[in-house]
């Protein structure tokens, strides 16, 4: 009897916490498809706000996707070989480099952006181009890729695999392509999803770095909150949810599959 009461209380608490998180999201989604939010859902359901957002902000959505993919490409091409080199080489220098790569996780996005502006703000063309935001995103997401890949390296004993391939005559690059990458694929995939998700949702840094011509989805979102009617901002949020939630689910799924192994 006592156990059942404890269980019921725990369940209740869990549901309250879940609701605390889920209700605002649900309200926001509802607002995005309501004709007039102040009159409530009985005013009717519509996709006009979504259409309006797509019309007004399609550019920011495409920009976000392009930057997320660009960020992914750079973190893959640079981060995975870097993780391999750091892991196989080991030693104090490797640990130091790893710490430096990880630093952006701890530094606020605003500070990071300020640093970028101070260093490269003078290079007008670079400053005004998408590459500037891309650079910010790469710095911010790189540690997640490197960490994720190094974690899988540790779990698959990559050092032995590397030595095994080397003993059979494979040069470093060949080992990397034939043996390291295929066996580290789950970690690389997990890192990739994380990078894309973080890049799509990144606001702090991007807000500092953007120009009127280089706006991403979250920056556009902030704009619409400030200047548009609530339904439009909500519809915008809805679009963001639709983009980001499949990524989050995929991340969860890969994580579970990885731990089940």
């Amino acid at each position: 009897m006592r156990d059942r009461i404890i269980f019921a209380l725990q369940l209740l608490f869990t549901l309250i916490v879940a609701a605390f998180l889920a209700v605002p999201a649900a309200l926001s989604i509802a607002a995005g498809v309501t004709v007039n939010y102040f009159r409530g859902i009985q005013s009717g359901v519509t996709l006009q706000w979504v259409a309006q957002v797509l019309d007004l902000y399609a550019g920011t959505i495409m920009a976000s996707i392009a930057i997320a993919l660009g960020t992914l490409l750079v973190t893959l091409v640079v981060g995975v070989p870097a993780a391999y080199a750091l892991y196989v080489r080991g030693g104090r220098l490797a640990r130091l480099v790893e710490e430096i790569i990880t630093l952006p996780v701890a530094i606020p996005g605003l500070a990071l952006a300020l640093g970028l502006l101070l260093s490269y703000g003078g290079f007008g063309n670079f400053r005004r181009s998408w590459l500037f935001i891309l650079a910010g995103h790469v710095i911010f997401t790189m540690p997640f890729m490197v960490r994720s890949v190094m974690a899988i390296f540790a779990s698959i004993d990559v050092k032995s695999l590397d030595e095994g391939a080397a003993s059979l005559g494979a040069a470093p690059w060949r080992r990397f392509v034939d043996v390291i990458v295929p066996n580290a694929a789950p970690g690389i995939l997990a890192g990739s999803l994380m990078v894309v998700t973080l890049s799509l949702g990144e606001f702090n840094l991007t807000w500092m770095l953007h120009t009127p011509l280089t706006k991403t989805l979250p920056v556009g979102l902030a704009d619409s909150y400030a200047s548009m009617r609530l339904e439009v901002a909500s519809a915008y949020t809805l679009i963001f949810f639709v983009m980001i939630i499949p990524l989050l689910v995929a991340m969860q799924w890969i994580g579970e599959r990885g731990s089940a192994k």
Partner: peptide, 8 residues
């Protein structure tokens, strides 16, 4: 190798 280091 002791761990065999076979390629999975």
């Amino acid at each position: 190798f002791q761990s065999y280091a076979l390629f999975p």
